[in-house]
Amino acid sequence: QWKVGDKCSAIWSEDGCIYPATIASIDFKRETCVVVYTGYGNREEQNLSDLLSPICE
């Protein structure tokens, strides 16, 4: 189960590419979260089910 502060990978809606991110907040009722893309600072809402394991850098 994901928690705030977890590192993950998420698909950015603008280009469909996968980027490393950190979970900033979680809404368990809606099963969504807000991620912050590492190195970019962009925030975006994602479905918890769409999150991927962190990418090894």
Rank of each mutant, 00 (worst) to 15 (best):
C8W: 02
N47I: 03
S9H: 12
D50L: 04
V4N: 10
P54W: 09
D50I: 08
L48N: 06
K7D: 12
W12L: 07
E57P: 12
D15T: 10
C8L: 00
G39E: 09
W2T: 14
L48D: 00
S13C: 04
K7V: 11
R30E: 10
K7G: 11
E31Q: 15
I18A: 03
S49H: 08
L48Y: 04
S25E: 10
L52K: 06
C17A: 09
V4Y: 08
Q1C: 15
E14F: 15
E57H: 12
C17V: 01
S13D: 07
F28D: 10
G16V: 07
I11T: 03
G16Y: 08
L51P: 06
I11R: 14
I11M: 08
W2R: 14
K7P: 11
C33T: 00
K7T: 11
Y19F: 07
F28L: 11
A21T: 05
E31A: 13
L52C: 05
C56Q: 14
N47A: 09
I55D: 13
Y37W: 05
D6S: 00
I26S: 01
A10G: 00
E45H: 03
S53V: 11
C33P: 00
S9Y: 15
T32D: 04
K7S: 12
I18M: 07
L51H: 03
T22W: 11
A24T: 05
L48R: 03
N47S: 06
E44K: 03
R43E: 13
D15E: 01
D50A: 11
P54Y: 09
G41F: 04
E14D: 03
N47D: 05
I18L: 12
I11N: 05
S13Y: 09
D15G: 06
D50E: 09
L48E: 05
E57I: 12
E57V: 13
G16T: 06
C8H: 00
V4R: 00
E44D: 07
D15C: 06
L51I: 09
I18W: 07
E57A: 15
K29N: 12
I18S: 01
C33D: 00
N42V: 15
Y40V: 08
G39W: 14
C17E: 13
V36D: 02
K29S: 12
G39L: 09
N42G: 09
D27V: 01
D50M: 06
C17N: 15
E31L: 13
E31T: 02
R43T: 13
K29M: 12
I11F: 07
A10S: 04
E57L: 11
G39Q: 09
C56T: 14
I11Q: 03
G16P: 07
Y40S: 15
G16Q: 03
V34H: 01
S49R: 13
L52Y: 09
L51Q: 06
I26R: 00
I55P: 08
Q1Y: 11
D6R: 00
D27G: 00
D6P: 00
L52M: 12
F28R: 12
K29W: 12
I55N: 09
V4C: 14
Y37A: 02
L51K: 01
S9C: 15
A21D: 00
L52I: 05
T38R: 03
T22H: 03
E57M: 12
V35W: 07
I26N: 04
C8I: 10
V4M: 00
C8S: 00
E44T: 06
S53E: 14
S13M: 09
C33Q: 00
V34D: 03
Q1F: 08
Y19K: 01
P54T: 07
R30S: 11
D15R: 08
W2I: 15
E57N: 11
V36C: 00
Q46D: 04
W12H: 07
G41K: 03
C56W: 14
P54V: 08
G16L: 08
R30C: 04
I23K: 03
Q1P: 02
N42Y: 14
Q46E: 06
V34I: 13
A21F: 06
G41L: 08
E44V: 03
K7N: 11
R30A: 12
Y37I: 05
P54Q: 04
K29Q: 13
N42T: 14
V36K: 02
Y40M: 15
V35H: 01
A21K: 03
N42D: 12
W2K: 15
T32W: 08
I18Y: 14
G39P: 10
R30V: 10
S49L: 09
T38Y: 10
T38W: 11
E14G: 15
E45S: 05
S9D: 04
A10W: 07
T38H: 10
C8P: 00
C8G: 00
C8Q: 00
I26P: 09
D50W: 08
W2F: 11
T22Q: 07
G41P: 06
G5Q: 01
P20R: 06
T38P: 05
A24P: 02
T32M: 10
E45G: 05
L48G: 05
R43S: 14
N47W: 12
D6V: 04
